[in-house]
Structures are given as C-alpha cells and as structure tokens.
Write a protein that binds this DNA or RNA. Structure first.
Length: 275
DNA sequence: GACAACCTGACC
DNA sequence: GGTCAGGTTGTC
C-alpha cells in the first residue's frame, strides 16, 4: 500500500515514538511475515535500542544500535499500530496483527497486514549491508536532482515511462498513485516510450514529482482504502487529479479520463492533454 | 508482454 | 458470484 509519502509519514511517526527505546520482547503470530532467518529474528532484535526509524523508498527501516536494522516492506495493506502487549502468541491480538514489539512502554507496537503480503526482516550490521546490495534500491524519489533523475531514467533503454518510474532500482518510492498523478501534472503520457523522453520533459516531470511528493508528505500521505500511520489517515487523496478517476472529466480539458493497463497496473490518464 | 502467485475484504 | 485493490516476483 504505501508509496514514498506514506513510508515517510510512518517512519517519521515511528521515529518520534521509538527512537531511544529498547526492544524488550518480540512475538510473531504468522511465520511467513518474517522473510529473513526466522530463528534469528527475535535474537537480532531483543535487547537492541532503536537509534532511529526512517524510510528507503517504500521501505521502513528501524536502525538498531548494533548497526543492524529491521526492515519492513508493507506491500498493499501493511500497517504499524499501537496496543496492549498480548503477553504470548495466544494472548489478545488486534485483528490481522502478525508481529508484536514490546518496548516496556504502556503500548506495544504491532505489525498488522490484512492481505499478509508485507514482510519483516531483521539483520546484523553485516547482513544489512549484504541485503541492501542485493536490493539495489535507487535514490529516494524526493531526494535527487533533475539531472540525476534524467540520467537514471536513461539507464533503462526500453519500456514505457510509467514502468520505468515504478522500477525501484531506478528511483525508489513511486507507486501507482504518485506515478499517475505526476505524469498527469507533467502532461506526459504514461505510455510514452522511455527512449523518446527528452531532458526537458524529464526536468518537467522531476519538478512535478517533487511538488507532488512534498505536498503529499505534508498531508501525511493518501488514504484510499486502508492506509494509516499509527491509526491516523492521510489526506492527500483529496488532491488526487486522476488516480481512481477513470471516466471523470479531466481537470484541465474536461475530456473523460481513460483507464488503461501498463505492466499489469491500472493506469488513468488524459489522452488529450498528456502527450 | 501477459498472467499467476501471494491474501483478504469491499463492492457490484 | 465476479472484479478490483497504494506491490513485487516469478512463470509461460
């Protein structure tokens, strides 16, 4: 579910709550949610102080004083929420909660994920470095300049522009919402071949992505279905111009917005004003 | 490139 | 009952 603005919001909220706190206990209720070594998950986390929580693209990273980290990818419906520590695997858990973290505070932290697509991973300092190399994540979409943005797009010679933007090794953090919104704002078609994109277009698209991502971060992300950060909705959905609006008139030219499919993802664009 | 897989819930 | 969903990965 979360794209970059949502990951930034969650990481910011978690950082305010947890930095300096020590993980006293960990429970996992649904084994497949742990994608790193399952036996090592608890031992790598228990006793560790959380130095900070931040994001890498759509990933949420809990930096530990070991130099290692816990990484969370929330996929479609992952969330962090607070609630009373369940005490044991058979204790009282919130609906769809799959892992719990006790910081010795009034409220424990839960990872909840209705569709169970998300994954948690715990790493030592060495293990983290190896995983990050393997992950090969591009720079955060809100933390690169226009020329670097253009140069990184050029690394992919083939494909449609939208597919390249969704490739997390090119730039990290774009998902279906902010991709469609940015392409609309820049008046560029998501179907445009990457090989045709000019430096000017890339610069325009970069400027619009920065504006949109920053505004979405200010509004704590888009709550379309289930996304929340620590139980709180984002409000950027009120600013969406095209996402989820197929058939409605284009806000610029009134032509009905068209729904298509790119790389298996529903795409909404204006065929009249996005070229 | 299209499609299935991973899952559950919302909506028609 | 069928379709769709802020994602990613792995098949034909």
């Amino acid at each position: 579910m979360p794209e970059l603005p949502e990951a930034v919001t969650m990481a910011t909220d978690l950082n305010a709550l947890l930095s300096g706190q020590t993980i006293e206990d960990v429970l996992v209720n649904y084994d497949p949610i742990v994608a790193s070594d399952k036996l090592a998950f608890g031992p790598l986390l228990i006793g560790q102080k959380v130095d900070s929580v931040n994001n890498m693209g759509k990933w949420v990273r809990f930096c530990l004083n070991s130099g290692g980290a816990m990484l969370a990818h929330l996929k479609m419906t992952g969330q962090f929420i607070l609630g009373p520590w369940p005490g044991s695997k058979t204790g009282t858990w919130p609906a769809h909660a799959h892992a719990a973290f006790n910081f010795g505070q009034k409220e424990a932290l839960f990872y909840r994920d209705t569709r169970k697509f998300g994954r948690l991973r715990a790493f030592s300092d060495v293990g983290l470095k190896e995983f990050l190399l393997e992950l090969d994540l591009g720079p955060d979409a809100n933390k690169l300049g226009p020329e670097e943005f253009f140069q990184r797009l050029l690394r992919k010679p083939k494909g449609k522009l939208k597919q390249i933007l969704l490739d997390q090794s090119v730039v990290a953090g774009f998902g279906n919402i902010y991709c469609d919104e940015a392409l609309f704002a820049a008046s560029i078609s998501p179907h445009r071949s990457i090989s045709e994109i000019t430096r000017d277009q890339a610069y325009t698209l970069h400027a619009e992505t920065q504006r949109i991502l920053n505004e979405a971060i200010l509004l704590k992300g888009s709550t379309v279905r289930s996304y929340q950060s620590l139980g709180e909705d984002g409000t950027y959905q009120s600013q969406h111009k095209v996402y989820g609006k197929a058939g409605q008139p284009c806000p610029r030219c009134q032509t009905p917005l068209v729904r298509s499919s790119i790389g298996g993802r529903t795409t909404v664009s204006c065929i009249n004003c996005q070229k």
